[in-house]
Nucleic acid binder design. Sequence first.
DNA 1: CAAATAGTTAGCCACACGGCTATCCTTTTC
DNA 2: GAAAAGGATAGCCGTGTGGCTAACTATTTG
Lengths: 117, 117
Amino acid sequence: MLVSHMAYQLDSIFSALSDPTRRAVVARLGQGEAAVKDLAAPHDMALPSFLKHLDALERAGLVRSRKEGRVRVCTLHPEALGAVETWIDQQKRLWDGRLDRLAALAEALEHEEGTTP
Amino acid sequence: MLVSHMAYQLDSIFSALSDPTRRAVVARLGQGEAAVKDLAAPHDMALPSFLKHLDALERAGLVRSRKEGRVRVCTLHPEALGAVETWIDQQKRLWDGRLDRLAALAEALEHEEGTTP
DNA sequence: CAAATAGTTAGCCACACGGCTATCCTTTTC
DNA sequence: GAAAAGGATAGCCGTGTGGCTAACTATTTG
């Protein structure tokens, strides 16, 4: 899994999650799949506007949907959140690594104490 | 910590992280603080453009900066990422809770088997 | 089959975003 | 003290985003 491949994914995932309506949809779908109409109900906006939010979530791979008759049923794909977690973990490792090097440096200086006036 | 307070924060944090330039800056600052000029160097854009990215990171609380003479020194504030992790963990709990209920339902059905023809 | 339901598509609008240049303001440095 | 360095600010420009209405398609349902 090349980082450059992930980058585009991360763009759309972070972007999708940057909106409260879309985060609410993710939370709702965490309880189980739902039809577009039911997903849209709690949100005070016209359906076409809401559909754009769903599109964003689908483009990010967070949600998938299938059509059953005239109803579109949406399902959460929580694995997509894994990309975010992975990225955060990488940042933590960078951060911790930096702290480790600082500690090593501090220790080195201590051992050297008094030898280089 | 009220959810409604977090919501606005999450907006700006997710939004800040939705751009590769800004994620690169976060990664860079994970190694230690740096001056604006040095942060900007790897990114092929004019300084004012880059400053907007820094602004986004500061507004999200991911980066803070202080002025030393004519140089602005930027520092990572990794705690801000905690808001993201918290949100993801909440979603996982929702998801897992749903699976638990499904399992409970399945078990209940099994016990009931044959008693309700 | 007619009407209601559930989406879908097209197109409009205001405003945010990401890039730029040009200019200005401090602080160093020579 | 003049010039260079490091940012900051203002303003322009094309594109993207989030909202809307209106009109259309495809399924159910009465």
